[in-house]
């Protein structure tokens, strides 16, 4: 099965790096297409990216070569050699180009350079995509793709067709608060009193059912009745924040 020239030998022994690159790329692509959660899609995107980096770095490998940093005998600057022993003639003799026979001793540095910047840019783009996910969650309350599509469709049909129910009603209290001016907080007029609390109560009840649903937080959610005013996280500030590094 693994004799020379067979496809197994060619793929799984000699070119295992390339084969694994193909497998990882497919895993990433499959996650990006078929996974439902957006965060999972982003992890798939990162796997895809690392697969491509693996491909590039595998290209640059040479058998029996060292890392792309000059050995002391090839180093024209001589900083390594100076530490090793006190041969100062390395510093005095002029720099010369590495001869062609020594070139295969070093791994190809070019793919490393390309991929080094790609990794850092990759984390920046990952952060950007995650921020878009957070924004989606803020707007729609979910990062699952099917629920998101459902909500988008519902919103589209509402916007296009007949009963413009929810959006105008949600917007009117804000408009009225703006136009009716400063009477918003003090004495509530009859209209705002009847109109305003409904959306807010609905939102609050929705959020409460959502967070109490997982049932892991039962002991802590007892004081969540009045969490409109209280921040969710109560963490005391540090004792002496200024003294740390001075």
């Amino acid at each position: 099965m693994f004799e020379d020239g067979s496809i197994f030998n060619q793929l799984l022994v000699e070119r295992l790096n390339y084969f694994i690159y193909v497998v990882l790329l497919l895993i990433g692509l499959w996650a990006m297409i078929a996974k439902n959660n957006l965060i999972k899609k982003l992890i798939g995107m990162s796997i895809f990216q690392t697969a491509i980096i693996l491909f590039y770095v595998s290209i640059g490998v040479k058998e029996g070569a060292t890392i792309p940093i000059y050995l002391p005998e090839h180093d024209p600057h001589g900083s390594h050699a100076q530490l090793d022993s006190n041969q100062t003639d390395l510093l005095s003799h002029g720099a010369k180009v590495l001869e062609a026979s020594a070139v295969p001793n070093y791994t190809n540095p070019l793919p490393h350079v390309l991929m080094l910047t790609a990794i850092v840019v990759g984390v920046a783009t990952l952060g950007l995509a995650l921020s878009v996910c957070l924004r989606i969650y803020r707007g729609y309350g979910t990062v699952e793709e099917d629920e998101l599509l459902e909500k988008l469709e519902r919103e589209d049909s509402r916007k296009a067709g007949g009963s413009n129910k929810r959006r105008p009603r949600r917007r009117t209290p804000a408009n009225k608060g703006g136009t009716a001016g400063q009477s918003k907080r003090g004495q509530t007029t009859e209209k705002t009193k009847s109109d305003k609390p409904t959306p807010r109560r609905r939102q609050a009840s929705k959020s409460r059912t959502k967070t109490n649903g997982p049932a892991k937080e039962q002991p802590k959610s007892s004081n969540k009745e009045n969490d409109k005013t209280k921040p969710v996280k109560r963490r005391r500030p540090a004792k002496k924040p200024k003294e740390d590094e001075s």
Binding site: V57, V61, M115
Partner: peptide, 10 residues
């Protein structure tokens, strides 16, 4: 594989 800079960055 000998790509020490890439390893460090990763």
């Amino acid at each position: 594989m000998g790509a020490v800079d890439v390893a460090f960055t990763e």
